[in-house]
Amino acid sequence: MNREALREATRSQMPAKRWDHTLGVVGSAVELANRYGGDPERAELAALLHDYCKYWPIDEQRRVYAEESLDPDLLEYDPQLLHGPIAAEVVRKRHGIEDEEVLDAIRYHTSGRERMTLLDKIVCLADYIEPGRDFPGVHNIREIAEHSLERALVAGFDSTIAFLLAKGKKVYPLTVIARNALIDVLNRAR
């Protein structure tokens, strides 16, 4: 499928405001890929598709999640985490996306994971810092992203974890694992 058809298929899955967000993530992902030596075309593709299923009804997301035999532990956490793994499977089947690194970047863009690839980091961070985002600390994360992908991601995960703790919500363990793995990477680089 060509990029224009993928853009239209993605745009049709979401409200206009989320499409604006997606375009912001695409631009930020390409910029980060260029800055940090990633592949801008793969970054663009993963960013374009990262929220493909986000606005599907939660019941539909849960149904697809079960059909695909995805990790049942995730169902115990905020339903907002479901759309990444679901989108990876759906775009593989509907649109023939077979690049596993692109699919993983889609799959883990909300949670992160241990041993994140460069593309994982780019898409995850682009989702945090795209120009339309406005949450406490986002300007600081954007500034850190000018110099360090890993430090910016740690700051992003810290922000997410602090938000969840303040709301009395559970923290998905993979996010903590991703954060800690990035801390290890930074410590080894010293």
Rank of each mutant, 00 (worst) to 15 (best):
D51W: 11
A87E: 05
Y172G: 00
M1Q: 13
T22R: 06
D51S: 15
L45D: 04
R107D: 05
G132H: 08
S159Y: 00
V64F: 09
A29C: 04
R92I: 11
I129H: 03
A145E: 11
N140E: 12
A46H: 08
Q61T: 11
Y172P: 01
D39I: 07
L182H: 00
R190F: 11
V138M: 00
L182N: 01
E130G: 02
L186W: 07
A33Q: 06
K169N: 07
D73I: 01
R92S: 14
A33S: 14
S111K: 06
S28M: 13
R63M: 10
K17A: 13
R94C: 02
W56C: 09
E146N: 15
A88Y: 10
Y55D: 15
M116V: 04
E41F: 05
K93I: 06
R92A: 14
C124F: 05
R3F: 11
S12H: 10
Y108R: 03
G84P: 10
L149W: 05
L74T: 12
L149H: 07
L164V: 00
L45G: 06
H139I: 02
I183D: 03
A46R: 03
D134P: 02
L6V: 13
Q13R: 15
D71V: 02
M116C: 06
S12Q: 14
L82V: 12
Y108D: 01
I129F: 01
H109G: 09
D127W: 06
Y128K: 11
E60S: 13
L149R: 03
M14E: 05
D104C: 08
P173C: 01
L32Y: 13
K17Y: 04
V176F: 02
A16N: 08
D104K: 14
P79G: 07
A66W: 02
L32H: 05
G137M: 03
N34G: 13
E76Q: 11
K170V: 02
A155E: 06
Y52G: 01
K170W: 01
R115Q: 12
